[in-house]
Design a protein around this nucleic acid. Structure first.
Lengths: 146, 146
DNA sequence: CTTGAACCTATAGTTACTAGAGGAATTAGG
DNA sequence: CCTAATTCCTCTAGTAACTATAGGTTCAAG
């Protein structure tokens, strides 16, 4: 019996992933290319939907596309030891913890800045003073994407 | 008396900002264009260095370039009330808090994933199970950049 | 005055998508 | 069966905030 197939729009609807993003994932090799109709339209199988869910969940957890690619490769041979998969998850956990630590510092400094504002004119606004003078704060110097 | 001037490399050295980034900030209008030598090389004044420090610190705090642009515009007329500057800082604080909350959820889920691994083969590795099935976790669905 | 370091512009690459143009295929209704 | 609306196709370019490269010019020390 032939398996049931889904259009890209249907896959998008059931997963919540945008159509363009599905094509994008195929383009970068995360999603295998599905069969096509005579008219060149994609027809997905249930396995594609599962794979897409896997990718989406991993992305929500903050895994980089490259990490997901590695996980998928690992998943291809199920008899391999799962140490590497575990390691990827561990690294991601570490990275998330570092981000939290950094953001917590930033929140503290922003709180100080906000608290120091007394609603008077810009001329004596602490926001500017503090921003202009890094030495009045105490955090380190790593950059963060906003 | 003529003010002392600095080459772009010197400014980079004293601020810790890369040369290319300084030129980039000028290109997007955050740093005013400095005078040039006859040979077309930039020569900065102390005020440029201050402005760059301001930008760098704001970026470290996670402010978007657009927000910094607004702050700079506010700073241009010092008699204006500082409410708007304060508002920008407040919004940033809120955004940082939201990120922390989200990352804390992710850390919790990654901890569960990592804890569930028992070092056996991929075939029964929980990392894959959990990643493949979003319903086994409990967080919301917003995306985060890695 | 020579040489090497620092500087210049302009372009393309990075990440993970998102949006648009312009056109073809599919599906629903009559 | 035919038409219209919807969905789909590819390709290109745009987003944020830089970073890197290529190919050429200027500066400053010796």
């Amino acid at each position: 019996m032939l398996e049931r197939t889904f259009s890209i729009g249907h896959v998008a609807a059931v997963t919540g992933c945008k159509v363009e993003t599905i094509r994008f994932y195929e383009g970068i090799g995360l999603l295998p290319e599905p069969e096509r109709t005579e008219g060149n339209q994609r027809r997905y199988l249930a396995k594609h939907v599962e794979r897409l869910r896997f990718i989406m969940h991993a992305r929500e957890l903050g895994l980089a596309v490259e990490a997901i690619r590695q996980l998928i490769a690992l998943g291809e041979n199920p008899s391999a030891p799962c140490e590497q998969a575990d390691e990827i998850a561990r690294q991601q956990l570490e990275s998330v913890r570092r981000k939290i630590a950094r953001l917590t510092e930033l929140a503290a400094e922003l709180e100080r800045i906000v608290a120091s504002c007394d609603g008077k004119s810009i001329a004596d606004c602490r926001v500017f003073e503090v921003l202009a003078d890094h030495s009045t704060c105490d955090h380190g110097g790593a950059k963060v994407r906003p």
